[in-house]
Design a protein around this nucleic acid. Sequence first.
DNA 1: TTCAGAATATCACTATATGATATTCACTAT
DNA 2: ATAGTGAATATCATATAGTGATATTCTGAA
Lengths: 254, 254
Amino acid sequence: MAGEGAAQERSIMRSVERAFEVVDFLADSGRPLRLAEVARGTGLHIATAQRMLRVLERTNYVAQDSAGYSIGAAALAAAHSYLVGNNLVLTATPVLQELAAALGLTASLSVRLGGARVLVARVEGSSPLRYQLPVGGRLPLHLGAGKVFLAYMDDAGRDEVLGDTARIETAGGAPIPISEYKTLLDEIASRGYAVSRNERVLGAVSVSAPVRRDGNLLGVVQVSGPEENLSPELLAQATREVVRAGASIAARSR
Amino acid sequence: MAGEGAAQERSIMRSVERAFEVVDFLADSGRPLRLAEVARGTGLHIATAQRMLRVLERTNYVAQDSAGYSIGAAALAAAHSYLVGNNLVLTATPVLQELAAALGLTASLSVRLGGARVLVARVEGSSPLRYQLPVGGRLPLHLGAGKVFLAYMDDAGRDEVLGDTARIETAGGAPIPISEYKTLLDEIASRGYAVSRNERVLGAVSVSAPVRRDGNLLGVVQVSGPEENLSPELLAQATREVVRAGASIAARSR
DNA sequence: TTCAGAATATCACTATATGATATTCACTAT
DNA sequence: ATAGTGAATATCATATAGTGATATTCTGAA
């Protein structure tokens, strides 16, 4: 038997899955959405979308105003529980504090969420970026510290995230051809850290390293700062410290 | 026909409702929960609870580790969307900043979430509390600034929240008999602000006022600080400013 | 090895989610 | 005013997807 086509994906708890698709869709689009937009965007029948939104509204995970539907306050309460309860976040925080204090840079931790990463902890350094890394914000995997996630994936995983892009566009500098980019990812995996300049944010430099525990990539630690603050010496020191921090978090996390 | 009993609540999207009950249940209990605990706590059949948790895990709203199930990172991303997109939060933030700057106290905004309130915005003052008000944290309605929510409810609403409690216990000081407490709520409603000392947090004082827009209570603004910092003059000034801030947020919010 | 507690798999039944269609509502422009 | 447009809501028949009882496997402890 040759390769089978797309698996059937016989749905289980279809309505529940759809409910969270709706929530995610609202979370992604930064503005309030009309019923019809939600229906279109999620592929739901408009009647279904409406029933769903009603239920979500009752639970306060979605709020409706004259401008349309958006995320509700219940999401905030759930997130709080994540931030104060999640083991990785708890063990990482003191390590991030040490990093920020030692280097004067903003230290942060992100975890993978589907085709993106989410910042789950951040400690400000003494030389803050004008651009604030947003806790809870979805950031791309293919730029900046996100590359570390791609670096440790196999080719299939990488392709799934990257799609059929021919070159990677960055905030500053020339686009990188995909073949060259993949070589870069391999280098990151073998070195155990990544350095990014002007990739996602213009004028920003970051050093990032994996938090790996028996083969699993739990998250990525990074420090970031404005380009002019990072002398070659500081960069070298930061690299050492960040790699160590990643290992330290992995070791301490239960 | 005399009063009918409890309405039948013919369920619509039952599984979706249940899914969010599971999420809320996990969010409330600060520690990871076992499958059986979730099933017991939510009243779901264990098989149902498991199917549910599986789906929730796939969506990353729930995470499982050796200790059990807890909230996943997807909740954080949704919450971020709420914080940067919610109109009330956006309009309140500059007002809270003014408050914090003018009074030197921590200013915050909370909204009602079922039988509790959730802090949705906070700006630190110059004399920070040793106790940090937690953004996203669920706080009770019957103590501190939460009283403002109760103050503007009708008796039925109040009773629903308060249940059949005979007296209100506070962090410091004597318990308040419920009749006296309800009088206090009425006073808060008529005065348009509340002052709380040692109610929810020992050594803390807060002044709180409603954010009301054509009859609806959108949220509550408050300033809080350590008891010793609040001279009678500062308290009087804070009261004026907080009431004004509440009105200002209501007026500006679309 | 036995046992207990928990997690997972299987399955028949029907309550529940679905989407087509119809209706009402909210605005604009005429 | 009034018609016209698009969106939001209500109704309803159908079958599918969710349910919970039961059985099985897994994991440690005694």
